[in-house]
Design a protein around this nucleic acid. Structure first.
Length: 849
RNA sequence: GCGAGGAUGGCGGAAUUGGUAGACGCGCCAGACUUAGGAUCUGGUGUCUUUGACGUGCGGGUUCAAGUCCCGCUCCUCGCACCA
């Protein structure tokens, strides 16, 4: 397990001569080995004598090497988990690997180009092996017996099982969606492979292509996903998810073409219907074909083709210049019978609402820009209080509150954001419903989750296509559909599954006839949407989750990870938990009680670490130079955990020195004469320092403030080093101080703490100890120091008995020479005493003679 | 443009409810021990014109007292950004 040159346990005869040095390279591997042998971190999931605590960190993608970022994510989390454990909880702190994904497949393709055969599975397992070794060096309390690896059929089989269950419930369905198509490599690209509209490998302009693909109906849970009321999550994440879901209330209203075909539009402002002076369809809208007049056809078709070639990202990249084409067709505004033009424009998105809008240029900025660009009419239908806007002269759209005008029976109705305004809008909707012109409608920005990936290295979608029976799921007892391994990776990047004949051909379970297998695989987010349930029973083959254990251990108490997963991963995880609940597998709908986002460690150049920038910091050399404990402690010390920041290794020296001093404090013989009587003040000061440290560090751990926890530990070490003497070392107070120091250090620097604990004469592990408790009586003082201010400026300090009355504090304060000087000849107008803290004497300056 | 967070010594960062700004550490300076020191230990270290004054991005305000509260700005980071 340890490949860090395990030095033999020091049995040196030289010990007497020279104080023994702190040698992490000797200590750390030895203890890791011992812990593994004792099974110290093996969690008994059945143990219900203690309350459970499920501490989860986001599992990594097996990139092959642990870098500082992994340490930064895991080391403080480990310390927090260890703290919980010492506080009496049965803590599960598991680790696994998000093992499917593009990089491994791309590596295989790259190798294929060079005529080599590298299988993603081989590569992935090799990398996992390496990372497990590196993780072990961290000295974290991961229980590796619970490890989950998502590319293992024992795991992804249940992805397939869940997929089929969701298909049965109508939550998985197939429909046409756009993909990024690379015309050179003849392959589909993930969004992150498209850079500035071009394929990252071929450099070809990426096209949008419609393909039938599998989707999960996350929108069915949209409203429930907006409810965060039971969660202790950062506001930021909740806001981001809320915006992502993007709930809008409004109405659908039916316009009609001149031939009577309905054009349904969604609007959040049905009160402005009377101001709708034209209608705009998305270029992909099915009605475009039919409303276009002969004379406009050529222009319309050219626009549609141009729009189709552009991705949504491209459309936006071109700025907000409005483009569009008149179709030649007209529609009738249902509320006033007015004949309006029908345009197409790419600022209207087919994927939102109904793919068509009514344009109200007077009250919508985008519509106004469009109207001005193409000379379309602008009519004001909401007048702000005390103003009268004119459509022709309007400089910007008016979106505020006001009173409806030019709106027939609704003239004079107040409208807008306020309570009264909303009543006005509601009355318009009610009228639309009565007249059969429209209805109330809620629309979401959130779209269904496109789960199909035209890729190899993922979970095969367990579906069959039968000529006779159509789409048929693979029967549950035939799962898993295993990914064939005897495949050749083509330099084009195409998934080998599409040409793997034995995989392709199957029997239809319904009619027994020939059927073709689905060759798409699942999005990697599928794996991470429920993996934490699986840590409880990673090898279970009879079910996706162990219901009994899941009932006992989930939801997760604490989840930590980077903000970059605030939206997709966490939203999908919440969605899946609700689906699992509805399938009767779990009894709760929210997966993670508390969420904490640690910051990101940047490179020394203050940029995000990446291989391409060449600024990735590998901590291995620091570990071999200073030890894992020093690296852990340093990462916790550099600043607030949620802040991250640029990496700078300079300061690790200070932390290493600190650990060295702690070592010396416990190990080195004290100086001085043991017969000298210990001053009572020394003992009391020592106890105060010890118990102050317990109090502060406990609070810091609760709030994940590891930086101040380490600082407090340093303060305690300083106090102890100053006080240390041969005679003090014989007292129970010193014994307590050493015991507490080592226990408080245990979650942060587990190896060193363990070594020192043994040297203090304990036979069992420090990691089985309870967290120390504060003795309030040790915190009291006889004397209190007051700051003394005159007119708010510090002029001196004074020590008074802790129980001194205000009057005696004041007189002592006034007696301080420098204070007296500033009071001299001035008129004292006010005296303020903050108990235990400060005195402020307010004077009027002496009238100068 | 909208939303959120932030700005404190040469550097990373500390500062309950407003109550001694700069904890802890890095770096730096001086000293001790040393053949040596990039080891270790001790002391010092916000700035300046140093009996004092000034200092928490800038300008105002409230208060006996403001890093902290209020008003108005600047800059930085992050998220969203034609979502009807």
């Amino acid at each position: 397990m340890d490949n860090t040159s395990p030095a033999p346990p020091e049995a040196g005869p030289r010990r007497e001569r020279r104080p023994e040095r702190y040698d992490p390279q000797a200590i750390e591997p030895r203890w890791r080995h011992a812990w593994a042998e004792q099974g110290l971190y093996r969690v008994d999931l059945e143990d219900d004598a203690r309350p459970k605590y499920y501490f989860l960190t986001m599992y990594p993608y097996p990139s092959g090497d642990l870098h500082v970022g992994h340490w930064y994510a895991e080391a403080p989390a480990d310390a927090a988990a260890r703290y919980r454990r010492m506080n009496g909880y049965n803590v599960l702190f598991p680790m696994g690997f998000d093992a499917f994904g593009l990089p491994a497949e791309n590596a295989a393709i790259r190798a294929a180009r060079e005529g080599e055969q590298v299988h993603p599975a081989t590569l992935t397992y090799e990398r996992i092996g390496r990372m497990v070794t590196q993780f072990e060096q961290m000295g974290a309390m991961f229980d590796w017996s619970k490890k989950v690896v998502t590319c293992d059929p024992v795991y992804y089989r249940w992805n397939q099982w869940l997929f089929v269950k969701m298909f049965e419930r109508g939550l998985a369905y197939r429909k046409e969606s756009y993909v990024n198509w690379d015309p050179v490599d003849q392959t589909v690209l993930a969004n992150e492979q498209v850079i500035d509209g071009r394929g990252d490998r071929s450099g070809a302009l990426v096209e949008r292509r419609l393909m039938p693909q599998w989707h999960f109906k996350i929108t069915a849970y949209a409203d429930e996903l907006l409810d965060f009321s039971t969660l202790d999550w950062p506001e930021k994440v909740k806001t981001m998810q809320t915006n992502w879901i993007g709930r809008s209330e409004g109405a659908e209203v039916v316009f009609r073409t001149e031939s009577g075909e309905p054009i349904t539009v969604f609007t959040t402002r049905p009160d402005t219907l009377w101001g709708a002076t034209f209608v705009v369809l998305a270029p992909e809208h099915p009605l475009v074909e039919r409303v276009t007049s002969a004379s406009q056809r050529a222009e319309v078709e050219a626009y549609v083709v141009a729009a189709a070639a552009k991705s949504e990202i491209d459309r936006q990249a071109e700025g907000r210049e409005k483009t569009g084409v008149f179709t030649g067709g007209h529609a009738v505004n249902p509320v006033n019978g007015e004949r309006v033009q029908i345009w197409i424009a790419d600022y209207v998105l087919m994927t939102y609402g109904t793919g068509s809008i009514m344009a109200v240029p007077a009250h919508d900025e985008r519509d106004l820009q469009f109207a001005r660009t193409f000379g379309l009419p602008v009519r004001v239908v909401v007048q702000p209080p005390g103003a009268s806007l004119e459509g022709d002269t309007l400089a910007e759209a008016y979106t505020g509150d006001g009173v409806m005008v030019n709106s027939g029976r609704f003239d004079g109705t107040p409208t807008g954001k306020g309570e009264e305004g909303e009543r006005g809008i509601a009355s318009v909707i009610a009228w639309l419903e009565e007249e059969g012109l429209g209805e109330r409608k809620v629309t979401y920005r959130l779209r269904d989750w496109l789960i199909s990936r035209q890729r190899y290295w993922g979970t095969p979608i367990p579906m069959l296509y039968c000529d006779a029976c159509g789409i048929v799921p693979v029967p549950l007892d035939q799962l898993p559909v295993e990914l064939p391994s005897d495949v050749a990776f083509m330099p084009t990047g195409q998934s080998p599954l599409t040409t793997h004949e034995p995989f392709l051909h199957a029997r239809c379970p319904a009619c027994g006839g020939p059927a073709r297998r689905e060759t798409d695989t699942m999005d990697g987010f599928m794996d991470s949407s429920w993996y934490w349930f699986r840590y409880l029973s990673p090898e279970l083959t009879s079910a996706a989750v162990d219901k009994e254990l899941v009932g006992r251990w989930t939801p997760v108490d604490m989840y930590t990870g980077g903000v970059e997963h605030s939206i997709l991963h966490l939203l999908y995880a919440r969605f899946f938990t609700k689906v699992l609940r509805d399938l009767g597998l779990v009894d709760h709908g929210e997966p993670f009680q508390r969420l904490f986002n640690q910051g990101m460690i940047l490179g020394e150049d203050n940029e995000k670490m990446s291989k391409s920038r060449g600024n990735v910091v590998n901590p291995d050399h620091l570990v071999s130079e200073y030890g894992a404990d020093a690296v852990r402690t340093y990462l916790m010390f550099i600043g607030p955990w949620d802040q991250g920041g640029p990496w700078n290794f300079q300061g690790i020296e200070g932390v290493a020195r600190f650990l060295n001093r702690v070592w010396g404090l416990i190990v080195d013989a004290p100086a001085g004469d043991p017969a000298v009587k210990v001053d009572e003040h020394v003992t009391r000061d020592l106890r105060r320092a010890v118990h102050t440290a317990i109090r502060e560090i406990s609070e810091d751990f609760e709030g994940f403030r590891f930086n101040t926890a380490v600082a407090e530990l340093m303060t305690l070490q300083n106090a102890m080093s100053k006080a240390k003497s041969a005679s003090l070392a014989l007292t129970p107070g010193w014994e307590e101080a050493c015991r507490v120091l080592v226990t408080l250090l245990a979650p942060i620097a587990p190896h060193l703490a363990e070594e020192l604990w043994q040297r203090l004469g304990h036979a069992t592990s420090v990691h089985l100890e309870s967290w120390p408790e504060v003795d309030e009586s040790a915190l009291t003082r006889d004397e209190v120091r007051y700051a003394v201010q005159v007119n708010g400026k510090l002029r001196g300090e004074v020590e008074v008995p802790a129980d001194a009355q205000e009057a005696s504090v004041l007189s002592a304060a006034k007696a301080v020479p420098n204070v007296a000087k500033h009071l001299d000849g001035a008129e004292l107008v006010r005296e303020i005493v903050v108990p235990g803290k400060l005195v402020n004497l307010v004077v009027k300056p002496a009238a100068r003679a």
